[in-house]
Design a protein around this nucleic acid. Structure first.
Lengths: 117, 117
DNA sequence: GCCATACATATCGTCAGTCGATATATAGAG
DNA sequence: CTCTATATATCGACTGACGATATGTATGGC
């Protein structure tokens, strides 16, 4: 089992994508709000620069994991994103997968040295 | 506490570096062996392409976390790496730090949606 | 009414780092 | 003697984050 190798580069990208999907789990939000919420929810540990956030949002939209629509209500123009069914499944599946990977990683890193006699 | 933000790019790099340092924890090894061991120990989940491994090894050497020396024994020429004191401290400290980050990450990803009534 | 600031989205150039390919060389097997 | 596995190294292409820059709108202070 566990045949597909592990792609470090894709892993870093996934973290960003999953943080976005997770914050959209309960309610639709526009980009700027996503950035603020992720930062707040993680006590400042995770944060998005806008030069990073918007490309990710566009990518997620292209992949059909979120759907964006311009809110025309009498405020500032905002593009509001909602999680699609595929997005919800992706979040769930990838969260499990990432959880397994990090658990294996930490296991390797924390494995105590063969106790020196 | 926990002020320094989280750098996704550096995180991916750290994973590779820590895997190398971890496999050197108990015994000195040369590069090729490191790649084989990491792959074996992780059941093929983590693996190094040699185009990735050697630059990492050189970087770790530059940073003083490992020390490499050419073995002149009557075999194939090998550059054997040993973990330095700084390397051991780095492994320990960064493992803790990475552990905290992933634990916070999984917490955010797994946080169940506000339970729908 | 005017201006500064915060909100809001978007793109571009740069840089870091992985990845695949390529190069070089030696030991051991058949 | 050739082929494969071992062993290290580097280069070019690609990917993706990041900082800077651009554009525009609403809001609050004066």
């Amino acid at each position: 089992m566990e045949d597909r190798g592990f792609d470090v580069q894709g892993f870093a990208r996934d973290i960003h994508e999953l943080l976005v999907l997770a914050t959209l789990r309960d309610e639709a939000k526009h980009g700027y709000q996503i950035a603020l919420d992720v930062e707040t929810d993680s006590n400042g540990l995770f944060r998005f620069r806008h030069g990073t956030l918007y490309p990710i949002l566009h990518r997620l939209e292209d992949e059909g994991l979120v759907r964006g629509s311009w809110s025309k209500g009498g405020g500032r123009r905002k593009k509001v994103y909602v999680l699609t069914g595929a997005g919800r499944r992706h979040l769930s599946g990838e969260t499990t997968r990432v959880g397994e990977i990090v658990s294996r990683l930490m296991e390797l890193l924390r494995r105590p040295g063969e106790v020196p006699a």
